[in-house]
Nucleic acid binder design. Structure first.
Length: 423
RNA sequence: GGAGGGUUGGCAGAGUGGUUUAAUGCAACGGUCUUGAAAACCGUCGUGCUUUUAAAGGUACCGAGGGUUCGAAUCCCUCACCCUCCUCCA
């Protein structure tokens, strides 16, 4: 959520920024917010004055009761208060309407892109900032063929038990996935991330605080009986640990890593492009979350990117790094790097990590703050990145490391798998 | 699922309708004293919104939301969460 203070003081810049993001009616929306804000404050001001009068009169009655006075004086004061109360009630109602309406309109606005984010409207406009040179190859099988050949994952069984997009991992397939999870968690620990095992169901408030609601309503699985949502990413549960907190600056940056299953309905994005492990309703992911001081959040973003690149390199997979353009940026992000690994059998790049700085967008909703030198509460910056998402890593690994005699397990994983090859 | 008890500032904890402006203690911060520290003593010490150049005010907040009342932390209703016992359970 964009800081209202920023909209007040820097209206033009906010509007310009939202235009670039592809909001043609940005000006009208910001104007509406400013108007509402002014009305809200005027209402609040009047309400405060009336409440002060009421409090004063009530106190007087209290004092008068202790000294014996004629009831007519008391009745007169009571009547004066009763007249006030009508107006106060109306103002309270009005103030409530203003607040909820203002919040609703603020919730609907995406974050403002960082000034260095490339201009552009579509995924084609994303900036490729690194790409592993590829050797030409042919005859590589796609992972869905390899999975069948070596009996690693059963999609049909998943269909039977649950439905499409819920695969069953078996034997070496299951073990390879577990090895990857452990490898990622151990690496994260070494890099200073404290491990978290969070709940995978969250309440509505949590989903609002990290920005999944109201923007992505319908993309999460919802359990109406308990009014809870299945998390689409561990980011939601882990970041919400810090909802409504003031963090000591000495504790910054806070770094967490968490492994959870993730659940996504993927409504509307289920198409021809989706086969095998490329897009699932349930998948595993190790997520990295950081809470940083605004002054150094971008330095930490770069470090997080370098860390995730290191993971892919250790798995000996070709990859590329994209800096997302303004139009392709996620709703909450101010800047995002995507890491895509190469899937040799499909001749395709698959996104396995999205590394973003949300600046104060989430912390504003979370009310996650620190105290500056003047003891003033200021919003912190939140960052997160996948480190990494499992199925597409698995897909790329199978396709890229396939040999005539089987699939070679990257060296770093062998202590975790206990085998060198899948044959 | 059943019965009972609870939720007050960073923490502990008083407060059952009106000088409560939420006591007190601990912790924290500043100071005096000290070579330095501890102890002792003095002072400061919640959050949001808002008025103001500032100093200083106003207002709201005692789990959440409603209600009663001139006035609610206090009384009533609804909900959430926590604890104890019973029941069930990995």
């Amino acid at each position: 959520m964009i800081d209202l203070q920023r909209i007040r003081t820097d209206k033009k810049a906010v509007v310009d920024s939202l235009h670039k993001r592809g909001l043609p009616d940005a000006e009208a929306r910001i104007e509406a917010i400013c108007k509402l804000d002014r009305e809200k404050r005027a209402t609040q001001s009047e309400l405060n004055t009336l409440a002060a009068t009421l409090n004063k009169l009530s106190n007087q009655i209290g004092h008068l009761l202790r000294s014996e006075v004629e009831t007519t004086i008391l009745e007169a004061k009571k009547k004066a208060i009763n007249d006030l109360k009508e107006r106060i009630k109306a103002l309270k109602q009005q103030s409530k309407t203003h607040t909820s309406s203002l919040l609703e309109q603020l919730y609907a606005l995406p974050n403002l892109p960082h000034q260095s984010v490339p201009i552009g409207k579509h995924a084609d406009d994303n900036l490729i900032i690194y790409e592993t040179p590829l050797n030409p190859s042919s005859g590589q099988l796609a992972h869905w063929d390899l999975i069948k050949k070596y009996d690693l994952i059963d999609f049909e069984l998943g269909n039977k038990i649950t439905g499409a997009g819920f695969p069953v991992y078996k034997g070496k397939g299951a073990k390879l996935q577990r090895a990857l999870v452990n490898f990622f968690l151990d690496q994260a620990e070494k890099a200073g991330y404290t491990e978290i095992q969070p709940p995978i169901l969250v309440n509505q408030q949590s989903a609002y605080a990290t920005g999944q609601l109201p923007d992505k309503e319908g993309q999460m699985y919802h359990i109406p009986l308990a009014n809870l949502y299945l998390i689409p990413t561990a980011e939601v549960s882990i970041t919400n640990i810090y909802r409504d907190t003031i963090v000591a600056t000495t504790a910054l940056p806070i770094k967490h890593a968490g492994y959870t299953p993730c659940f996504r309905r993927e409504a509307g994005s289920w198409g021809a492009d989706v086969r095998g492990l490329n897009r699932l309703h349930q998948f595993d992911k190790v997520e990295l979350v950081q809470i940083c001081h605004p002054d150094d959040s971008y330095a930490h973003l770069e470090r997080m990117l370098a860390y995730v690149q290191g993971l892919v390199e250790q798995l000996a997979l070709p990859y590329r790094v994209l800096k997302l353009c303004q139009g392709d940026l996620g709703f909450c992000a101010a800047m995002t790097y995507d890491i895509e690994v190469y899937a040799a059998g499909q001749n395709k790049w698959l996104e396995v990590s999205s590394i973003s700085n949300f600046e104060t967008f989430q912390s504003n909703r979370l009310s996650l703050r620190y105290k500056d030198q003047n003891k003033k509460s200021c919003l912190l910056h939140t960052l997160n990145g996948s480190g990494l998402a499992l199925p597409r890593i698995l897909a790329s690994l199978l396709e890229y490391h396939q040999r005539p005699d089987g699939i070679a397990i990257p060296k770093v994983l062998r202590p975790y798998t206990g085998f060198h090859i899948i044959d």
